[in-house]
Structures are given as structure tokens and as C-alpha cells.
């Protein structure tokens, strides 16, 4: 992780229009994303009060004792980290140098709202929470995008289906 990337992360956070311009330039070069893919769709028929919910975030969240995401590879890290539903939010940390997460470091719920979801389950506003939630880091380039699409995302989907999860709240970094 270079000083330049760290600086750019600060600048993009402070001046979102510059970040949007950078995102457009990434998209215009392709970066391995097939834009012609059909948007996946499944109607949601359950009452949310009965639904089983998981969190998936690309904000770089993982358990402090787990292996951090690779910040040396300039193309990012396409792997995922399992975050057990039993985890204490105090045991979570963020490894993601491509955005300014100083506020999330103060309150992890702004990127990984586990405590809010627990409150909703306790109040009966949600059915239950999944056994596991998943952390990824959303700065992927070159071949890592294909790895995400062809390996990482399908593996997470398999695990969610095996746990009878009805819907997922996805949060970016």
C-alpha cells in the first residue's frame, strides 16, 4: 500500500466527484467486468419479520485474529473472511487502505451494522441472523475481478444457501 494510494483515498473521501471520475475511468477500461451480464433477480416474497439475514461487506472488515487482507498486491485481495454471528463487534478490525475508514474504526456499525441487526431481531423486526457473515475488500483489479466473480462470490453464495439465508445486506467501503 503506497503513500499515493492512501492519499488518493483521503482525497476521494473528501471530494466525492473526483472519486466518481476515477470510478468512471476504471469502468471505461473494463477491468474485467462484463457489463452485458443480465442482472440477477429473485422476487422477495417473505415477510422481513420472518427472514434470515446475513451481512456481506466489501469494506475490509474481518476478525482481528484472522489474516488481514493483502495490502501489498496493488490489484487487491479477492479472498473473503468469515465473521461468525457470535463475534463481538469489538473483535473486528478493518484492513482496507483504499478509503478513509477512521469513522468506521470508531463505530463498526456504519459499515458492518451487526449490533443494529441484533437489536432488530430482539425486537422482532427481523427473523434471525445467519450463522456467518462475510468480509471482503472492495479494491480489485485485473484478474482478481474474475476470481471474485467465478470463485469468491459463488462460494459465499453456496454458504448462504446452506444456512437458509433469505436475504443479504451488502455494504460497500
Amino acid at each position: 500500500m503506497s503513500f499515493k494510494d492512501r492519499l488518493m483515498a483521503k482525497i476521494f473521501t473528501a471530494i466525492p466527484s473526483l472519486g466518481r471520475r476515477a470510478a468512471k475511468s476504471i469502468l471505461s477500461t473494463g477491468e474485467g467486468i462484463d457489463m452485458k451480464r443480465e442482472i440477477p433477480w429473485k422476487p422477495f416474497t417473505k415477510d422481513i419479520k420472518d427472514a434470515r439475514v446475513a451481512l456481506v461487506t466489501t469494506s475490509g472488515v474481518h476478525l482481528s485474529g484472522d489474516t488481514p487482507f493483502d495490502m501489498v498486491d496493488p490489484n487487491g485481495d479477492p479472498t473473503f473472511r468469515v465473521i461468525s454471528n457470535e463475534s463481538d463487534i469489538k473483535d473486528l478490525t478493518i484492513t482496507h487502505d483504499y478509503y478513509d475508514h477512521s469513522d468506521a474504526d470508531k463505530d463498526m456499525n456504519i459499515v458492518f451494522p451487526l449490533e443494529r441487526l441484533r437489536e432488530m431481531v430482539a425486537e422482532g423486526a427481523l427473523g434471525s441472523l445467519a450463522k456467518e457473515h462475510y468480509g471482503l475488500m472492495g479494491h480489485l483489479k485485473e484478474g482478481h475481478v474474475e476470481t471474485l466473480i467465478n470463485e469468491t462470490a459463488p462460494e459465499i453464495a453456496r454458504r448462504l444457501i446452506a444456512d437458509n439465508v433469505d436475504c443479504v445486506l451488502l455494504t460497500p467501503g
Binding site: P16, S59, Y99, A104, V111
Partner: peptide, 14 residues
Amino acid sequence: KWPMGHPIGEPNFP
């Protein structure tokens, strides 16, 4: 339309 890194909002504003 919020700053990056704050998809759910402000810290300590449940």
C-alpha cells in the same frame, strides 16, 4: 450521497 466509508451513516448515531 454521503462520503465514502459511511454506507450506514454517522458513527455513534444508532
